[in-house]
C-alpha cells in the first residue's frame, strides 16, 4: 500500500453553539498497541456524520470511545467534551452518559425476550414504572424506527423471531427509548440485505431531525447517500473531515481521494 503523510489533514470546524460533542487529541491504546492517533473533531447537532475508511483504520474504535464502550478493553486518553464536561473524567457517571449517547451495533443484538420487553427492560430498570408512559414510549420508539406497522400485533412474540433487518430496527428503537441526545451507529447495515438497508437508511435520515447521529460505515455509497459530513480515517489517523459533498467530489487529501476512488480498502 502507498505511504501517505499521516500528519497532513484537513478538518472542518464548527461554531461552538452548533457542537454536540467535541473530541480533542484522542489516543486509544490496546495494551501496547496504539490504534487511534491524536484525533480531534467536532460533531454538529442534528446532523449525520459518517466515518469511512478501510478496516483497521480505527474508525470503530474511535466511535466506541464516544460513549465509553471501550472502558474495559482499551485505554483512552484525550478529552471528549459533552455538555461542557469531559466524559473521560472519572467523575462522570458512565451509565447516565450512555443514556444520553446511545449505541447500535453492527450485528443486530436484541435481547432474548419479547419485542416489548426489549424496549421496556431498560426503562423499567431506570425506574420508570408508569404503564401508560411505558406503552407510549414503546409505540413512539417503534414508530420512529419504522417498525411499528410490522410488529404492532406481535409485541409479545420473542424478538429472536424477527428478521435481521427488523431486529436491527428494533435495536434502533431500543436505543431511542432512552431518549438520547446522540446516537452512535457502528456499521448498522453491514449484516443486512439491500432492502432492509434501504429501510434503515430512511429511518436514520428521519431520526437526524431529532438526534445527532454518528455512524461508521463500510459502504461509501451509504455515506454519500445519507450523511451530511464525512470523516475519513486511515491507519488510526483522521485524515479528512468535511461536508460529504466535498469529500466525495473534491477531497483535499490524496489518501482520501485514493480511498474513495477505490485504490485501496
Amino acid at each position: 500500500m502507498k505511504q501517505y503523510d499521516l500528519t497532513k489533514n484537513n478538518i472542518i470546524q464548527f461554531k461552538p453553539e452548533r457542537v454536540a460533542l467535541d473530541a480533542k487529541h484522542v489516543n486509544v491504546f490496546y495494551g501496547e498497541k496504539q490504534s487511534t492517533f491524536d484525533v480531534s473533531m467536532q460533531f454538529p447537532k442534528n446532523r449525520i456524520i459518517a466515518f469511512i475508511g478501510a478496516s483497521g483504520s480505527g474508525k470503530s474504535t474511535f466511535l466506541r470511545c464516544l460513549n465509553r464502550m471501550n472502558d474495559d478493553v482499551a485505554t483512552v486518553d484525550g478529552q471528549i467534551n459533552y455538555e461542557g464536561l469531559n466524559i473521560n473524567s472519572s467523575a462522570i457517571n458512565v451509565y447516565e452518559l450512555r443514556k444520553q449517547i446511545g449505541m447500535v451495533f453492527q450485528q443486530p443484538n436484541p435481547f432474548a425476550k419479547s419485542i416489548k420487553d426489549n424496549l421496556t427492560f431498560a426503562l423499567k430498570k431506570h425506574g420508570i414504572k408508569d404503564n401508560k408512559q411505558i406503552d407510549q414510549v414503546v409505540k413512539s420508539s417503534l414508530k420512529k424506527a419504522a417498525l411499528y406497522e410490522e410488529v404492532q400485533d406481535s409485541l409479545n412474540k420473542s424478538a429472536m423471531s424477527l428478521s435481521g433487518g427488523q431486529a436491527q430496527r428494533l435495536c434502533i428503537a431500543r436505543a431511542i427509548t432512552m431518549n438520547p441526545d446522540i446516537l452512535l451507529l457502528d456499521e448498522p447495515t453491514s449484516a443486512l440485505d439491500p432492502i432492509s438497508t434501504k429501510k434503515i437508511e430512511a429511518t436514520i435520515k428521519e431520526l437526524s431531525e431529532k438526534y445527532t447521529i454518528i455512524m461508521v460505515t463500510h459502504n461509501m455509497q451509504q455515506a454519500s447517500r445519507i450523511s451530511d459530513y464525512t470523516a475519513f480515517f486511515h491507519m488510526g489517523h483522521l485524515i479528512e473531515y468535511d461536508k460529504t459533498s466535498k469529500i466525495f467530489t473534491n477531497p483535499s487529501e490524496e489518501a482520501t481521494e485514493d480511498y474513495i476512488t477505490g485504490h485501496f480498502g
Binding site: E83, G84, L85, N93, Y95, E96, L97, Q100, D181
Partner: peptide, 16 residues
C-alpha cells in the same frame, strides 16, 4: 448547571 450535567456528575442507582 444544566440538568444533564447534574446527572452526569452524580452517582446513580446503577453505580451502586
Amino acid at each position: 448547571m444544566s440538568e444533564i450535567k447534574n446527572k452526569l456528575l452524580k452517582p446513580s442507582k446503577a453505580t451502586k
